[in-house]
Simulated scan of single mutants.
Amino acid sequence: MSDIPEISSNSPVITTGKNQLENLLSANQSDLIRFVGRENSTIFFQFLLSLKNVHTRRAYFFDLLHFFKFLRIQKRGRDFKQTTRSDLDHFKEQMLRYGPDGKSMLSPSTVKRKITAVSKFFTFLTRQNIVASNPAQFVERPSIPLEVKSEPMTRDELKLMLSLIPTQTESGALHQALLILMCSTGLRVGEITNLKNGDYLPDPKSATLYARAGKSHIHMKKELSLKCTEAINYYLLLKDTKSLNPNDPLFCGTRGKSESRLEPISAQAIYKMIKSYAKKAGILKNITPHSTRSYFITEGLEHVSIGEMAREVAHTSIIMTNEYDKRRKNNSKKLAESLI
């Protein structure tokens, strides 16, 4: 690792992120040297370390690596500090048509994220007085249709999935707490994995949970139901006492060959967990973590207005909230058919 900057243990980043970034650097060292270059690597790493979310950091790492590769190959090694809006329009079209490997196109949502990553990188550079302005500021992002592809589960399907969880084990208690929490709060996976012990304030009757919205960064206060409180408290009883520091993850990955006891459960583990119980329950629909959010919104709209629900799930637009409500879409079709 002598060709790339050493990551200081004093960096303002959690240990999980530091270890993750070190692994990324080690696995992609040759591409880093070739496309980013030694002279630019330090500011590149400083930007990545400024990102608090480990999942965002990993995604932006490759997004920016693809951008530097584009500058090296398509723009004949142009210095990133000389990037223009025209360059970024070219980068966008290159990713949409051919992708980073020149062989497979990327989805509009992936390209939109790459442009966002580049824009945030240049915003960071302007704050560091390295460049005068952000050339990505006015680059038009690819349009993405508002559509939620996962399907919501019914109450009976949720009850069946919960009944299949072996709650006598720590991993089972973890799965029960996660499934109940996600279905009763509508929290996103990223919001769940970022929770710390200190965000959870237990109470005999109703606990309170503080979370930060993953996309809008809004701070949310969630009043938990008695059933959800009991599930989390039961999991914490079985959880290793070494991981009860307020700054440690609330939900830790269970024992495994490559998982640390103090690392948060991964988004991939949550995805696999939900898919596994849906399969065991014989549910043929496409049940994913988004299904729990859709369940919460659909069921919740029976009791609150769509505007209140949008605020509850930290949506900036009620249009997105409505996209999650698959039941009401079906009702609209039934209503139309019943009138003639």
Rank of each mutant, 00 (worst) to 15 (best):
R311C: 06
G307Y: 10
K114Q: 15
M320H: 14
G99F: 12
E39A: 12
E308S: 15
I283F: 10
T292E: 04
I14C: 08
M220F: 00
T169W: 09
G77E: 09
F124R: 04
V118W: 08
S305F: 08
I340V: 04
D248F: 10
R97T: 08
F44S: 03
K103A: 12
V139L: 00
L160T: 14
R141D: 04
D101Q: 14
E191Q: 07
F70W: 06
M273V: 06
I4P: 01
P204V: 08
L201N: 11
K120M: 13
F296K: 08
T241P: 10
T254V: 13
V13Y: 05
Q74S: 09
N331E: 14
K222Q: 15
F35H: 07
M309A: 14
A314P: 07
P152I: 02
L24I: 04
I232N: 01
A136Q: 01
T241C: 00
A213N: 13
D89V: 11
L48M: 09
G186I: 11
E263D: 13
I180C: 00
E191M: 03
A27W: 05
V13D: 01
F67N: 07
H55K: 13
F67Y: 15
S338I: 08
F61S: 05
D325V: 01
L209M: 12
F124S: 10
T241R: 09
A267R: 09
I265F: 05
K103C: 04
I192Q: 03
D325E: 03
S26V: 02
I287Y: 05
L174N: 02
Y234H: 14
L125C: 14
P246I: 06
N129K: 13
M220H: 05
F35A: 01
N245Q: 09
M309F: 11
Q74W: 00
